[in-house]
Design a binder for these strands. Structure first.
Lengths: 266, 266
DNA sequence: TAGTGGTCTAGACCACTTC
DNA sequence: AAGTGGTCTAGACCACTAA
């Protein structure tokens, strides 16, 4: 026998998932807690627990004074490898992430990215990615990227000092590292990026991340580890991104490998 | 002022995150709820709420009779595109996912995959991927993949009837579609797969998925949409996977695109 | 049988929003 | 001031595990 709050939550969830045809389309208000208490669905705590479950499943958001409302399904922003197109940042002056936003028809505003740069001892993961010994120092360039007032993700890039010392990439001025962004700076310094590895996984958000990214309770995050190489396989950037899961999808095209044929790498 | 349960949860979370050096290394038991009640951390419900928060953040698991225990961090299984290597399923008789498991040193057992095949009206997403009109019929081949007793993910493949009618891929016998798996069957039928598109995003698990995949409360899922093409860009398979987030990471290597040079596609 | 977490109640009170 | 969800308490009772 499922608990009472589960039964109630499932009943409401089913109606919510019907969408526009259902009793609770996106934007609709769920009954107030005290209402369902009077309907005999249980005590206030029990109904509250059901509402918390729906919130954790990403179906509703609750707020004091407003009530409990069915969440709108916003389309996921698709991130393809085209966002790294050299033509954008090498020949023009666009930063990769901004070019991406322009392409998707959203308005561009300045200061949607805050940045702090510091020289630190490399965390183990970072040292490993760069092939550095434990305790080596790196530059960390941490950004919080916002869309309007809403933070969407953090992105922290780690560089080896000998690659970036003296460039404007380590100038702690806010903003997207000047014209062209970080890849342009590396390019001008003689390190042209050539290929990348991206690793992706999801996990629950920590309470710090819930605060920083203003996540709805229960929303997971996607962590992205990006390693960027020159043509000679030198790692010039290792970056860690933490993304609000409900806002992004990643897209990759590739050929089916065939190790019997030794024509191409992969 | 943060609520009392948040303060308590953060205090415990901090000690858990210290890992082996902390008060609660992986596998350790947290104090019992009634103990913390006596220590003045609040009423039973309050302490319970803090424990639920830690569970939702993926730090602990609670069970009746056992207590509340710090979760072990299992290494993520890395999924690279090499798992689709033609040599494995075309020349040998391995199924992609099994070859992958052998490579990572885990034992292979039969019947780790249950399968149901049915002919259904294509859901909108599936119809779109195959370029079919609304209401067209497709074969759906749904599997639940387990590792030992633990389900790890579901994978549902959708095929166009004219591609698979009469093949053993639509034979509703349990097991991985016979020697070589689904791609081998398509290959034998004259549809050699050539390239793929994968789309990935994360979301909270539904209550059905929590049951089916035996997920710890609060654990998100990663949804994978895979479209498989022949060399002539015919879609021969569209598949949707739902994965327990804590078990997998995806890995992609690619070249930085350059739309100024028109040498290669991507 | 004893010990664990989980559910549920009834009610007081708090925090935030709207009027 | 009125109305919303959120927190907290005290206590009863349930469900599962282990000895």
């Amino acid at each position: 026998m499922a608990p009472k709050w589960r039964v109630l939550a499932d009943k409401l969830a089913e109606e919510i998932r019907l969408g526009e045809q259902g009793k609770y389309p996106p934007g609709a208000q769920l009954p107030q807690i005290r209402e369902l208490v009077e309907d005999g669905e249980g005590s206030k705590s029990t109904v509250h627990q059901a509402y918390k479950a729906l919130e954790a499943e990403g179906l509703v958001t609750s707020s004091r004074g407003h009530g409990t409302v069915v969440r709108q399904r916003v389309p996921l922003k698709r991130l393809g490898v085209a966002r790294y197109d050299k033509a954008k940042w090498r020949d023009g002056d666009e930063v990769a992430f901004i070019a991406d936003r322009v392409a998707s028809g959203r308005s561009y505003r300045r200061n949607e990215q805050t940045q702090t740069v510091s020289r630190i001892e490399a965390p183990p993961l970072v040292a490993a990615a760069h092939g550095l010994p434990d305790g080596a120092e790196v530059y960390a360039r941490a950004r919080v990227v916002k869309e309007g007032d809403q933070p969407t993700h953090t992105l922290t890039s780690y560089y080896r000092p000998e690659h970036v010392e003296g460039t404007r990439i380590v100038d702690p001025t806010p903003g997207p590292a000047g014209r062209g962004g970080g890849f342009k700076v590396l390019y001008d310094a003689g390190y042209e990026i050539d290929h990348m590895k991206e690793q992706i996984f999801a996990r629950p958000a920590s309470s710090d991340e819930v605060k920083l990214l203003q996540l709805p309770p229960g929303e997971p995050v996607v962590e992205l580890h990006r390693t960027t190489y020159t043509a000679s396989d030198t790692v010039v950037e290792f970056a860690i991104g933490v993304h609000a899961a409900s806002r992004f999808a990643w897209e990759y095209d590739f050929e089916v490998p065939d190790s019997a044929k030794r024509e191409k790498g992969q």
